[in-house]
């Protein structure tokens, strides 16, 4: 029972981790290698707000989202928009440069010590039969699902969301329809960064973090998105669930491949899926609905 509960909670959290990554990839065809460090930045902001203002970490989440929204907007509008028509490798390289820069900045500001956000409800939980559900993890999973639903509703129900989808389908046609694609790209990237910020605030309450921790989450996001496919926000949840399933149950099946091989596992999953089913488990041609 306990592994199943752990799996579902972890899977929902992974959806929050990869949601923004999937959006930017689907709409702009950019692999944002700085995604992981956005998450870590979000964790640091939540940490600062929670410790200095004595707020609940779940309220601090909104500060993380707001600040990363602004950061994402500035980065896309000021930097990435300038190379978006360039070869794929250029945007890839560029986001890697941003990753290095942000990681180093975090190291300067906060040192490379481990941090952990102490939650006010630390240790509280519900016992369900033989399983124990930590309240922090449960609320985090719920927030992740709410964010996914909110993004899906925003994209399909609002004019702005439709404009984002239209730009993702055909950039030039969208421009002819009067959409300012520079603004739309900036908005898309900002939303993606805000979602990463939320994931970071959740992450900080569940595990210790440090500036260079981001790389792992970028790789995981990639594996999750590839697993789920670049279809809809809900495909990310599916991908997160599958990835969490592998991470939770692999040590049970192969005890020797446990702790310490997280990157190798993420990578192996990713390559196998790409070779067997390149569009992902629930993928579609483009980001829609």
């Amino acid at each position: 029972m306990q592994p199943i509960v752990d799996w579902l909670l972890l899977g929902s959290f992974y959806a929050a981790v990869a949601l923004g990554f999937s959006l930017v990839w689907g709409i702009m065809n950019i692999i944002n290698l700085a995604h992981g460090v956005f998450i870590i930045t979000g964790a640091y902001i939540a940490y600062q707000v929670a410790t200095n203002l004595h707020l609940s970490p779940f309220l601090a989440l909104f500060f993380s989202m707001g600040m990363l929204f602004a950061l994402g907007w500035i980065i896309q509008y000021g930097i990435i928009n300038r190379v978006i028509r360039g070869p794929l490798l250029v945007t890839f390289l560029l986001t890697f440069g941003l990753e290095l820069l942000l990681t180093d900045t975090l190291q300067n500001l906060f040192t490379s010590d481990n941090r952990f956000i102490n939650s006010t409800i630390e240790g509280a939980g519900i016992n369900l039969g033989s399983a124990h559900i930590s309240l922090v993890r449960f609320i985090s999973a719920a927030i992740a699902i709410v964010l996914t639903a909110a993004l899906a509703a925003f994209l399909s129900r609002t004019r702005l969301g439709n404009a984002i989808l239209a730009t993702g389908m055909d950039r030039d046609a969208a421009r002819l329809m009067g959409i300012d694609i520079r603004q739309i790209y900036a908005l898309t990237f900002a939303i993606s960064a805000a979602l990463a910020g939320a994931a970071g605030a959740l992450l900080g309450q569940m595990q210790a973090f440090y500036p260079t921790r981001g790389e792992l989450f970028t790789l995981r996001s990639f594996a999750i998105v590839v697993l789920g496919g670049l279809g809809t926000p809900w495909a990310v949840v599916a991908g997160g669930m599958v990835f969490a399933f592998i991470e939770t149950f692999l040590p049970v099946v192969l005890p020797r491949v446990g702790v310490g091989y997280e990157n190798a596992v993420a990578f192996a999953v990713f390559v196998i899926v790409l070779l067997v089913r390149p569009t992902g488990l629930f993928g579609k041609a483009f980001y829609s609905q």
């Binding site: 930097i79 360039g86 070869p87 250029v90 390289l93 941003l98 290095l100 820069l101």
Partner: peptide, 19 residues
């Protein structure tokens, strides 16, 4: 400025100005 900061800055400049 660690080595990564300047590598990062150089990457951004090259990607924008000299791809």
């Amino acid at each position: 400025f660690g080595s990564d900061t300047l590598l990062g800055v150089a990457i951004i400049i090259v990607a924008i100005a000299l791809p």
